[in-house]
Amino acid sequence: MSEAAVRSTAQGAGTGIDPDLMKKVDAVIEQYRGNRGALIPVLHEVQEIIGYLPRFVQSKIAEALGVSEAEVYGVVTFYSLFTMKPAGRHKIGVCLGTACYVKGAAALLEAVKQAAGVENDDVSADGRFSVEVTRCIGACGLAPVLTIDEDVYSRVSPESVSEILEKYE
């Protein structure tokens, strides 16, 4: 879902979020109603369920906890582990730690973005891939390293990226 679609949606209908998941989200939010101090745990739990924190969900959380939307948005944009963008079906991580970097991870990242169809927006238009930069994942001997979901690929060359991505639908 594009960010514009998220912005234009007021109540969650047509957000592309599974109604069953939305029920779980609502249950979490209700559990903390009126509890201003529970903002970070609520954001955590909700992101666990739907993978990101779209605008209308932040508004719901603000209303239920009794804090302003500006405060919720402030917390969401402060902590890097919170995201306002939906993740793709497959999460690609490109390590830009020191060892990977000197082994050409920057070129690898470009190749990954191109192959996955990801521009500056971190999710491909078809929702298949999202790309994120990771810090050292402790596999420096195998640099440069690429992860897709739970799989780890070592000594990846930019040329081999397309072939790797084909395995993921």
Binding site: V67, S68, E69, A70, E71, Y73, G74, T77, F78, S80
Partner: peptide, 10 residues
Amino acid sequence: GVGAIGLANR
């Protein structure tokens, strides 16, 4: 008690 503005980003 309005909260129209807040600190955002980092």
